[in-house]
Design a protein around this nucleic acid. Sequence first.
DNA 1: GAGCCAGATGTAACCGGTTACACGATGGCC
DNA 2: GGCCATCGTGTAACCGGTTACATCTGGCTC
Lengths: 343, 343
Amino acid sequence: MTQATIRDVARHAAVSVASVSRALNGAASVSPATRDRVQASARALGYVPNAAARSLSLARSNTIGVVLPELHGEFFSEIVRGMDRAAGSLGLQLLLSNMHADVELAAHALRAMRGRVDGLLIMAPELAAATLIDALPGQQPAVLINCAAAGRSHPGFGIDNRAGAAAMVRHLLAQGRQRIVHLAGPGSNLDARERQEGFTAAMAELAPGAPVEVLAGDFHEETGMAAAQALLSRGPACDAIFAANDQMAIGAMRALQDAGVDVPGRIAVAGFDDVPVARYLALSTMRVPIAEMGARALARLARLIDGTDTTTDVELLVPELVVRGTTATGAISNKNPQEEPTS
Amino acid sequence: MTQATIRDVARHAAVSVASVSRALNGAASVSPATRDRVQASARALGYVPNAAARSLSLARSNTIGVVLPELHGEFFSEIVRGMDRAAGSLGLQLLLSNMHADVELAAHALRAMRGRVDGLLIMAPELAAATLIDALPGQQPAVLINCAAAGRSHPGFGIDNRAGAAAMVRHLLAQGRQRIVHLAGPGSNLDARERQEGFTAAMAELAPGAPVEVLAGDFHEETGMAAAQALLSRGPACDAIFAANDQMAIGAMRALQDAGVDVPGRIAVAGFDDVPVARYLALSTMRVPIAEMGARALARLARLIDGTDTTTDVELLVPELVVRGTTATGAISNKNPQEEPTS
DNA sequence: GAGCCAGATGTAACCGGTTACACGATGGCC
DNA sequence: GGCCATCGTGTAACCGGTTACATCTGGCTC
């Protein structure tokens, strides 16, 4: 025999299906006697309501669709952890799908979620605004995370990359650095673009005379290494490298150490994201509250679904400056960084 | 207006719902003319089939329920990545739920998935076999990952922790280490228990005379530090610390460095898991193929669901020894470990 | 005792798909 | 020309829940 249905329970308890439904959902007006009998029967038969049927009937699934791009480890788990925490406390489930880069596949993933989810949480830092808006099912509530498209028709969340970059520039300047080179991320990535803009804007404002140099990069460690090597081999030296993410900063650090360059004595290095490794390598960086972003995005989506919040503005989370050894003016303290507790 | 239904499409194309269903699902015997008209109507109305209705009718959701414990970052994202990759290639979706430690909540999570998923992928290294079996919905196909309960009624996947521990012991002995201390994980955790058993068994077999010491731990970095400090302060010195996971090994390394102890000169340190940080810290460890485990578990579940594979044995994945600086006999090479490409 | 109301329960329609079965048209064959 | 197989299509039942509405019961008021 397969799973028991509500009609099996009704038969077993000698009542109608309506009474079973009412009794199990705690609805009004069921006599205590009936309620008890129904609950006993349900337990006896091992009855578990069929979620698909429930969703269909109620036009509500209590499930949130999550569409993420191909993310490197830590970022992925953190954001999902935040979402899961919020979802758990609201009694919601998470249906996960990777964006798989391709717009066609992404659209298909979104399509497959129709009827299965009450709303969507979408992160697509690489997608152009128009493309994404097109792919979105019109009716479905959605919150966009780190999307160029956020703010118009859909509410969004994002990192305040400009403010973060500015904070790091301010810090480096305060440490007496004069020639800061920015190692940018891929131009296709929204965060990368905003960080670069933040960098140039901050330099223009805070150090009007200083040379502003930007090197192209792609968020990968190797690129960081190559860039640092290139910087060393060519003419005028810089005294600080500010990478658009930690991976590239780590690559740069390695290359500098290989070349015997004193970090931060001769060249300071800073990253962005605060991946867990950063702490071990004493890398100064901007900490991005990823889990919090996931949790808040989910909570907002929940409000959007139940109509409590219909705004469409973008909320920005400001990264926090984390100063470690690689930008300290004093001694190199590249080991035993214990400024924070272990996560 | 809400979303278009199959009846809207049928009306628009002037055919019956049956024809629409057949046309859109590529079923046999629909005339080309009808098919085209239906497809045109569907496109015109922006029709997307309702997954809940489809699931209900077909008794098939093409969705896999994934239940994981509270996992530290890297492990979580890796296993989900593996599952997602396999799911994507099979046209399946992933419904995610955290196990939240509590059995009661776990049971509830499993319940909420009824009717929504075709099968379950469950990871519960902390749960006793009987408890888990009880909580499992009887009818539902399930594959257990790292579960004590695997192998009896349900197929499973796991890490060959014993073989992994033995391999590390063999390596340490080959490096000339004589007094190896094992820093164990929590007794509630299956992996931790197996690693410890593997350690003691290997010591008994490979170094019958050598002292076998095991310290209790809990997988956390602080514990590793404390253990190393304790080892230093007390009497007879050991010459190798083999921790049951990387976090503890890292803690131990730090404490040793703080105390000015030469690693690996005086004491070698080894971990288990190969978390990404390990590479940067030059920590020797056992690499666990997490993503592969996720992918293979999902593939097996898919076969279980469609009846292709009804075995219930446990497949073990063998970890791979990764030798880095912390166990090298020669020089300390604690920086620039470049034995592998960046992931 | 008739009339009314409230509370408990049952009946059946509905959610949006799939599909068994019925049906009409077409064409081939004798 | 009549018969039958085949093909395309439509009707309606079904999946397993929820719930509007009808019904029945008992207690209350006058």
